[in-house]
Design a binder for these strands. Sequence first.
DNA 1: ACATGCGGCCAC
DNA 2: AAACGTGGCCGCATGT
Length: 546
Amino acid sequence: MDPATLLWSRSLVAVAPCRADDGAGAVVVTALDGDAVVLLDAAGRALLARALRDRDRVVAFADAKPALRWLLARGIDVARPVCLHTLAILGGVEPQASPGALSWSSSLSSSPLAARAVARAVLDGLDARLARVEQRGQRKVARLECLVLRAFAALEHRGLPIRRARWQELVDEEKRAAAAARARIFALAGDHVARDLFGTPELNLDAEHEVRGLLGRAIGHAVDDSNRATLAALRHPLADALLQWRESQKIVTTYGDAFLDHIVDVDKAGVGRIRSTFVPLGASTGRVSCRDPNLQNLPGNPRFHEALRAPPGRVLVTADYGTCELRIVAELSEDPVFLAAFARGEDLHATVASSMFGVPVSKTQNSELRQRAKAINFGLVYGMGPAALAASLGVDRDVGEDLLNRYFRTFPRIRSYLEGSVETALSRGYSETVLGRRLFFDPDALAADNARGELGRLMKNMPIQGTSADMTKLAMVRLHERLLERCQGAAGLVNTVHDELVVECDAVAADVVAACVREEMEEAHRTLLKRVPPLVEVHVGETWTH
DNA sequence: ACATGCGGCCAC
DNA sequence: AAACGTGGCCGCATGT
């Protein structure tokens, strides 16, 4: 069929990219009544670009994100993608349940013939996948998850800007620090470490059991593990040196050579790009995961964030939802003190402490009480118990228990909300976010005696963490479309870290873009949460700033 | 050469 | 000391 006719006359098409003999690639477009191969020469690209950016045309893919990224690299943007892979996850379709899935879900087919089979399988499978999604009540979630793939494809395509040489310097500094700490360790260890003929210590600091053995010999005190808390509690120079070595070595190994290898396209100003893979449904709660490399756990140290710098004439707009998860708790529990504190823009931790202890509290007045309230606020999101609270505050268990009792006595709505989360999940078999995102539990796990323990914490946490994910993804969809309208390709997302967005744009557009980011994030919040106002903190700078 | 589990640790 | 949620990456050790 004539490609132009097929593309313009159909509101639903399946698209599969493939290699082509000319090397530029091709796209197979399939509708219910025919297919067309579009070669990506200048004319083909123009035709596809016009047809696929049309908001009234749904474009289905086997696995949309890599396909969208492949198309973006060829100047083609898709306004309304649908992703069968995403629908399968939300529909609870096991990978084994769709035989041959691997054969047609690969993002780039080797020939138009293979791509045609993929596109037809997509069209054939779409209704069944949608039915499963509908059956699970995940239609709204599916719509969001499909639309957000467009933003993620663009984010990956653009890449995070980074000053390669500066990052290398920081890693080199850590290499020197690690070597110095290593020398201190072996000096302090003395005869407790065996040495070879040349005096080289025969102990591998990377081997946890060898480190424990050394600690046992040198300090005369056996330890069950060698994690940071244990080493710190030893209060021994050797343990301190080990902690310093671990800290530096972590940077060197995780953010060193392997990380630097991901930097590509370094420009004349020394700014390169990292194009990671984001997995929008990477976490069971609805959160995004990120890999190769993970851009969601970069060192918080400002020196590293300052190495993430836009090219000359460009800036980074960074924005995050302040106290996002506690606002969600306030919304869902309807606790009057929480709601009032957020409505008035108060310091929530101080207000909570003041309510609990009946005395005035601020960052300067009775700040130790504020610290306790903050620890509880932080932990309750995770379904924390008294022991964990005591540990995080460095107090005895019974003190932790008293604190938690006092907390729930002061905020009974929070207790009943959290208990309600568990009851609802146990009776329905799933936990749910504000948008309606569901996490279904294994019936065997629900039937287990300890379902209220480990599973209970997950049931308390999922609606909170998941609603935060709903909000950030909604903001991404809104912002991506807004920036396309406002700035064409000149501004775009370059990272997202759970409750934070990072956008790169021209310096002269910084104020306009910052306002867009704020508005779309606030509007995403208001779409989901009606009782709590949004708090979006926005920064503009040449580097990633907090 | 790959995969898996684990301890440890980075982020939110 | 830790006994709270979600991830990914490192090295080691063990398996195929």
